[in-house]
Computed example of a mutant assay.
Amino acid sequence: MINTFSSNLKSYLYLFPLLFGIFIAADDQTVIVTILPELLMDMKIGINELDKASWTITGYLIGYTAVLPLMGNISDKIGWKSAYIISLLIFGLGSIFIVFSSFFTDIFPHYANYSYWFMVFSRFIQAIGGGALIPISIGAASKIVPKLSSPIVFGLIGASAEAGGVIGPLWGGIITHFVSWEWVFIINIPFIILTIVLILKYPKVERKKSKIDLFNGTIFALFIAASTLGFSRIGYQDNKMYLFFIISTLLMILMI
């Protein structure tokens, strides 16, 4: 019994790099909540511009969800290790861009008005990398430790995402208590490097000769993005909300 427990524990620990990557990405989805006041002050966004401020969250949510339907096939095509590492690098690049956005005005004074939107764009890039990690991990987990039952694997992946989302605001509050908000994203870089090093230690992955359905995957991604934008406007009940819902409906019809 002790040997069985030890073997199962090693199998669970073998999943740690995958789960840690998911945790970091989910953490950055909610960490923005506590650093937002300081961030908006640096970006010179007024308290009366809450509609504009909400894009720091909406932009990440769109990127995080839109990439989900595409990554399963891509992961099979290029191998889950390559897909996971590329996703982490995209997530890291977005983190670097976010830090850079705080210096955007100093470097490009004539484009100072675009510094905030560059930060929103950076959040979107970051979210594309972060959102891709969950579908890649679901497919990879069964290949890494096939002896584990699927419910346990899915539970660990879901728990990692939920834990990151819960701890995010607390983590942001702790960081900004001691240093500036940029450090929330700077700290991502060593964590990403550590995760990539651990992922590289996994055995060589076989690639499948699968066809990537880019058309339907892209349509579905656009449907998710349009729906997310529509729901984000419900509180305003304006023409933009109706436009996004009309677009999402047309895209849904196109998928049928």
Rank of each mutant, 00 (worst) to 15 (best):
K52T: 07
S6H: 12
L18W: 06
F154A: 05
A161M: 10
K77R: 15
I90P: 05
I90T: 14
V184M: 03
A26D: 04
E162Q: 05
A127I: 08
A221T: 02
L243F: 09
F23P: 05
G217E: 00
G139K: 04
M241E: 15
A163P: 12
I187S: 01
W183T: 01
I219K: 00
W80Q: 02
G129N: 13
I193H: 05
S95T: 06
S160E: 09
Q126G: 08
N113P: 05
S142N: 13
F154T: 07
M241N: 02
Y12T: 02
L50S: 06
V179A: 12
N8G: 00
D106R: 12
V120W: 02
D213L: 07
N239D: 13
I138T: 11
Y60R: 00
F191K: 00
L50C: 00
Q29M: 09
S248L: 08
K211S: 06
G173H: 07
I196L: 08
N188I: 00
I144A: 11
F100M: 10
A66S: 14
G230E: 04
I256M: 13
I85S: 07
M1C: 09
G130H: 03
F118N: 03
S11L: 15
P135I: 08
I196M: 10
E49G: 01
S102W: 06
S75N: 12
I138A: 14
I134P: 04
F20W: 11
F23I: 13
I138W: 06
T30I: 06
L61Q: 04
G72E: 05
A140V: 07
F185N: 01
M1A: 11
S54A: 09
L68Q: 10
W80V: 04
E38N: 12
Y60D: 00
Y116F: 15
Y236A: 09
L222M: 10
K44G: 04
L19T: 06
F185H: 06
I90K: 09
Y14M: 15
F20K: 04
I157A: 02
L19E: 04
I224M: 14
